[in-house]
Design a binder for these strands. Structure first.
Length: 503
RNA sequence: GGUCCGUUCGUCUAGGGGUUAGGACAUAUCCCUUUCACGGAUAAAACACGGGUUCGAUUCCCGUACGGACUACCA
């Protein structure tokens, strides 16, 4: 057993939580619970321009639906409140000033426009601009200016940012739990902005400061953060702190073609990439949710867990508790995983079969007589992927058909079948005393036998006559569910509608 | 362009110096079944390429190709 870990899931409230983010949250949750540690939810809302109302609540709701709620953080509280970075604003400033005082960071007065222009110039020359040791002396910052100049600008409330003074030479190395050793030269790292001119910290500063203060031991996040991990290490070093263990997760990729899974893929492929339905507050665009599609939380979790991780055994079905027991960081893959809807559906079917029928019926067939509903659900449980199919299916099932499978009739409808159906129509009622599937079967059998007709020859036509369809669930049980009267009515209607046979 | 990361059946993956390269989804066929589905069985299907190292490489090393992420006062 590992030492208790403290991990965090730190999304930005800029829209609905992506399914890849859900997987990140899941892995964090799993490790925390396996070790008896804490899973913390921190909201990283330092970019006020991208704030989307409702997004934070969406995140909370999603985790709740999946059963992976945080032990600490936004929505639940804890010893390091507040857990919303916008509410911790002042804190970051003081840490940035500490770096400033130690000469590990500096003021920069270059405007966004100035830097854009410089970047464009570099680009047109086919190279890329870096705000780093070789360029910073030529730019407008406290390293290139005199102390007086800087004080002047500051006293006049000139907008400024605080940048990290990245050493010109050196190698940053760290051991990622998934990728092993990663090394990068400091020369390829920019003097990243730590504090923005609006007084908010950037992700990098806020993240490192909070992870340290909140005593985070393991940072498990998406691979998109791998390139900035060395910068974070540098920041830990600048503060004199021990960095946490990093684990950078492989990305979730498009089902077809190349690239990472995006919202567009969902719209195109007709499957969800968000846990819950999301209605965009500005455009009104509706994005599908796993929940609304009919995915069960545990199936969703199981499916997600296996995208990039496996237990090394041949077991594929894992409850959340089993995942907690079995999960380990070192069995996570390095390569990205394509999202496969078929597999997701298969997981759902597996979990659906194990759902108690009673519970299914009470939520999906609330208006039907419960005995009848349970029998119906049992009849269809192996034939559906999502429990919410039950409602529509039951409507179709109990409706007397008006269209009949023509292909089957063209093939099978003949004089013998017509005789058989006539006989059944005439005699079934009196032949079956108690209307249940067994007696119905015996009744049909004996009626046909008396006429010298084989049951197998009649069944499919009988099915079409009664249900309209050439295929479907057990006919005898179906007949029991339809009831005596309805069956006789169906039979009669079919006889009236089927063409007359001659010869 | 630069930096970093990756590459086993169509997909998710197991494995790892000597294997008939295993499983699951999807596909096909068969069995079960009055039909369809479920279930069962079987089949087809993979180590990106080129060099090393080695008696031997899919496995280790180096390149190449391809893919991806990042390259903002976004996270």
């Amino acid at each position: 057993m590992l030492n208790p870990v403290r991990v965090r899931f730190a999304p930005s409230p800029t829209g609905p939580l992506h399914i890849g983010g859900v997987r990140t949250a899941l892995y964090n949750y799993l490790l925390a619970h396996q070790t008896g540690g804490q899973f913390i939810l921190r909201i990283e809302d330092t970019d006020q321009t991208r704030f989307v109302p409702g997004a934070e609540n969406y995140i909370l709701e999603s985790l709740k639906w999946l059963g992976i709620s945080p032990d600490e953080g936004v929505g639940v509280g804890g010893p390091h409140e507040p857990y919303r970075q916008s509410e911790r604003k002042g804190l970051y400033k003081s840490y940035a000033e500490r770096l400033l005082a130690d000469g590990k960071a500096y003021y920069a007065f270059d405007t966004a426009e100035e830097l854009d222009a410089i970047r464009k110039t570099y680009e047109s020359k086919g190279s890329a601009f870096q705000y780093n040791a070789v360029n910073r002396t030529k730019l407008r910052n406290s390293l290139a200016m005199s102390t007086k100049e800087v004080e002047d600008l500051l006293s006049k409330d000139t907008p400024y940012v605080i940048r990290l003074k990245v050493p010109a030479k050196g190698e940053i190395r760290f051991q990622d739990s998934i990728r092993d050793w990663v090394h990068v030269h400091t020369s390829s790292i920019d003097d990243k902005v730590l504090m923005k001119s609006d007084g908010m910290p950037t992700y990098h500063l806020a993240n490192v400061v909070d992870d340290h203060i909140m005593e985070i031991t393991h940072v498990i996040r998406g691979e998109e953060w791998l390139p900035s991990a060395p910068l974070h290490i540098l920041l830990y070093q600048a503060f004199g702190w021990t960095p946490p263990t990093f684990a950078h997760l492989p990305l979730l990729l498009k089902p077809e073609g190349n690239g990472k899974l995006s919202k567009r893929d969902a719209d195109l492929g007709g499957f969800p990439v968000f846990p819950l339905e999301w209605i965009d507050p500005t455009t009104g665009h509706i994005s599908k949710g796993f929940r609304e599609e009919g995915y069960l939380p545990e199936a969703t979790l199981n499916f997600l867990a296996f995208l990039g991780w496996n237990p090394g055994t041949e077991q594929e079905l894992f409850s959340l508790d089993e995942l907690v027991q079995t999960f380990s960081l070192d069995r996570i893959n390095k390569a990205g995983a394509k999202f496969d809807v078929n597999k997701a559906k298969w997981f759902n079917e597996q979990y659906l079969k194990n759902q108690p029928i009673k519970a299914l019926v009470s939520t999906y067939l609330p208006n039907m007589d419960s005995t009848k509903a349970e029998a119906f659900a049992s009849l269809y449980i192996d034939r559906i992927t999502f429990p919410n199919q039950l409602g529509k299916l039951s409507e179709e099932f109990f409706e007397i058909p008006s269209v009949y499978d023509e292909a089957v009739l063209a093939n099978k409808w003949n004089q013998e079948n017509q005789n058989a159906l006539n006989l059944l129509s005439k005699n079934l009622n009196s032949k079956v005393e108690n209307w249940n599937s067994d007696e119905i079967k015996h009744g049909i059998h004996s009626i046909l036998e008396d006429a010298g007709i084989k049951m197998g020859k009649v069944m499919q036509v009988l099915r079409v006559a009664l249900s309209g369809n050439g295929a479907g669930p057990d006919l005898m049980i179906s007949m029991e569910l339809w009831g005596r009267e309805s069956v006789l009515k169906r039979l009669q209607k079919a006889l009236e509608n089927f063409p007359e046979c001659h010869g």
